[in-house]
Write a protein that binds this DNA or RNA. Structure first.
Length: 255
DNA sequence: ATGGCTTGAGTGTCAAGA
């Protein structure tokens, strides 16, 4: 089973890239973040024609998450239960017996800001919910844009980014608390090239200079991690005209 | 120190991203 996550930074703009990537990579499921549209603007028909059913938790202009699947989607859940939130950042469903939780974790803007406090509250609510969710679904994957670089290895310039947003101690501790639930960072199950990143700033030629961060992750519960055979960041779509600033990431899980 | 670029909204220019 091949499962993937991609922050597309507007699905309307990026639909051609998504369709090309689905055709090339043939994932069983793809989790999208930042669709930036309401359901009425979501390209259900085009995805269906490509062989994918889809569920969406959308909103106008900002955020918006979706899961695409070639094998149907069961037990659909939108948002974090019991956490009051206007922003559409979570959608979950079961595909082939695997619970997929698609997350667009808040950016946080600046350490100490109101948005930063929201990010930390949001992460605490996510963690509490997942603890419960994992008892119901032992085979669980948390995929998406975490807006956290877990380690200095995941940062092109750790000195410049020290204690900055995406790299602060509190954010990294929140990431660790997700791992403490029994989730594993699939990317670090395997030997990886140094300076591997999943996001590069549009500005100042970030991609050309590989001035990036690894902030898009696929965390796997133990039964999935044991069967995981690869975890990959696909930089190819970042090289296209009008790319998303994020690359898709994917894992392969043996039967 | 700041902005660099992209998107959506909406038609002038700003918020938000990371």
């Amino acid at each position: 089973m091949k499962i993937a996550a991609w922050n597309v930074n507007s699905l309307k703009v990026r639909l051609p890239h998504v369709l090309d990537w689905l055709a090339a990579q043939q994932p069983d499921a793809l989790c999208l973040q930042e669709t930036k549209t309401e359901d009425k603007g979501f390209p259900f028909a085009e995805l269906e024609a490509a062989g994918y059913s889809a569920i969406h938790n959308g909103q106008k202009t900002y955020n918006g998450v979706a899961i695409l699947s070639r094998h149907g989607l069961e037990d659909v859940q939108r948002d974090i239960p019991g956490f009051a939130d206007e922003q559409k950042r979570i959608i979950a469903a079961t595909v082939n017996g695997v619970r997929l939780v698609c997350a667009y974790i808040p950016n946080g803007n600046e350490v100490g800001s109101e948005k930063y406090e929201y990010k930390l509250r949001w992460l605490a609510a996510l963690t509490a919910w997942l603890k419960d969710e994992m008892t119901r679904h032992p085979k669980l994957a948390l995929l998406g844009d975490y807006n956290i670089a877990p380690d200095d290895r995941d940062v092109h310039d750790p000195v410049a980014w020290k204690d900055k947003i995406l790299c602060s101690e509190a954010e990294r501790s929140a990431f660790q608390r997700l791992l403490d639930l029994g989730l594993q960072d699939s990317f670090r199950l395997f030997e990886q090239a140094e300076q591997s990143f999943s996001w590069w700033d549009y500005r100042a030629a970030g991609f050309r200079r590989n001035a990036g961060l690894r902030i898009d992750h696929i965390l796997l519960s133990a039964p999935l991690a044991q069967k995981c055979t690869s975890s990959t960041i696909d930089k190819a779509p970042r090289k296209l005209e009008r790319p998303s600033d994020h690359a898709p990431v994917f894992v392969e899980i043996a039967p």
